[in-house]
Amino acid sequence: MTPRTPGTRKVGLVGWGAIGRVVGTALAAHRIPGAALECLVDNRPLGDSAPAPHVTFEEALRRCDLIVEAAGQDVVRAWGERVLTSGTDLLIASTGALTDQDLAERLLAAGPGRVYFTGGAVGGLDLLQAVRALGPLHEVRLTTTKLPATLEQPWMDEELLTRLRTATGPVEVMAGTARDIPAKFPRSTNVAASVALAVGDLDTVRVRVVADPGAHHTRHVIEASGPHGTYRFDVAHLPDPGNPATSQVVPHAVLRSLAALAGRTGQIL
């Protein structure tokens, strides 16, 4: 257990998968000053390798002042409001849940806990937020390209699944807005929600999801334009080897957000 000092954030980590293992291991190794791993929440047995007590969600709320969600959109829907009303802060990795406008409004209205989200696998969100202060962007486009197997979903019909499984080059899987796409791909398109949250409008962000059997990197291309300028961000990440639906960088983005919440000084960006 990480030693605590007065003012240390007591962190409850929800999820011990590709994201949670990296985040929890870093916290247990004392790599985030001002934050201590208090407990883990997961609906699976964790065995003896877990670096903190494995507890229920209710117990985590009693023990912690910050919950880090690293387990998917369903956790945000089921527990987000309860976390905040208990007085505990919530850091959300699965930002796609916030495209549900009713849920987002309930979370923003709940308290006294505060809700935060991390940008995850995409950059440029701080600039888009700054530009938004000058006036609305006229057009925002996001193209996400991933390996076909990471995009397969239960709602897909056989024709689409066959196109994905037999693709020899890029195939457009779906196009829509940031309001629609994250719900269709709950583990693969949180970036769309993050961009929309930065822009401030779910319907302005047009999203294309592309499957490419040659996509050794997960790629996100953001193109935005407005009366004050044009912007383009192009990022390509290695997928996580244990869960190719997410990028290796995502847990490190969560850790960066944790460091900011824990009060790291001398840093703006």
Rank of each mutant, 00 (worst) to 15 (best):
P148L: 08
G119H: 00
L125V: 05
V191N: 03
Q153E: 13
K146D: 07
T143P: 09
V115K: 07
G123L: 07
L127P: 03
L125F: 03
L151Y: 09
L151W: 08
P186N: 10
P182L: 09
R165M: 07
V115M: 14
L125R: 00
R179D: 00
P136G: 10
E158M: 14
V115G: 03
T166H: 09
L164K: 01
G123C: 09
P154A: 13
G119W: 00
A133H: 06
P170F: 12
Q129T: 15
H138I: 05
G119A: 09
E152L: 14
E172I: 13
T162A: 13
V122W: 00
G119P: 10
L127T: 12
E158C: 11
L161E: 10
H138F: 14
R165Q: 14
D157W: 08
V131L: 15
K184V: 13
R187G: 01
V140F: 08
L127G: 02
L134R: 15
G169D: 05
P170C: 06
A183R: 09
L164Q: 05
T118C: 05
V122R: 01
L134F: 08
Y116M: 11
V122T: 08
P170Y: 09
M156I: 09
T145H: 13
Q129N: 08
L128R: 02
E172M: 13
D180C: 04
V191S: 02
V122Q: 00
R163M: 05
R141C: 11
K146M: 15
M156N: 09
L160F: 06
G124D: 09
P182R: 04
F185L: 12
R187T: 12
G135F: 04
T143S: 13
T162P: 01
V191C: 07
T118Y: 00
F185W: 07
Q153W: 00
E152H: 11
R163L: 05
T144Y: 04
G124W: 02
T145A: 06
F185M: 03
G135N: 12
G169P: 10
E172N: 10
T189I: 02
P154V: 14
L134P: 04
E139R: 14
T177W: 12
Q153V: 06
V140H: 02
V173C: 02
L151S: 04
T145I: 11
D157G: 15
Q153I: 01
Y116Q: 11
R132N: 13
G123Y: 06
L142K: 06
V122K: 02
A149I: 13
L147C: 08
A178R: 02
V171N: 05
L161C: 12
M174L: 15
E139I: 02
T166E: 09
I181Q: 02
R132M: 07
Q129C: 12
V140A: 00
T145M: 09
Y116P: 01
R132G: 07
G120Q: 04
L142Q: 01
L137M: 15
R179N: 01
G124S: 07
R163F: 06
H138A: 05
V171S: 05
R141S: 11
T118F: 01
G123E: 06
A121W: 01
V131K: 03
M174T: 03
Q153C: 07
S188D: 05
R132K: 15
A183S: 15
E159N: 02
L142I: 12
R141H: 14
K146N: 12
A175V: 10
M174P: 04
A133F: 05
P148E: 07
L128H: 01
R141L: 14
T162S: 05
L147H: 15
K146H: 11
G176Q: 12
G124E: 06
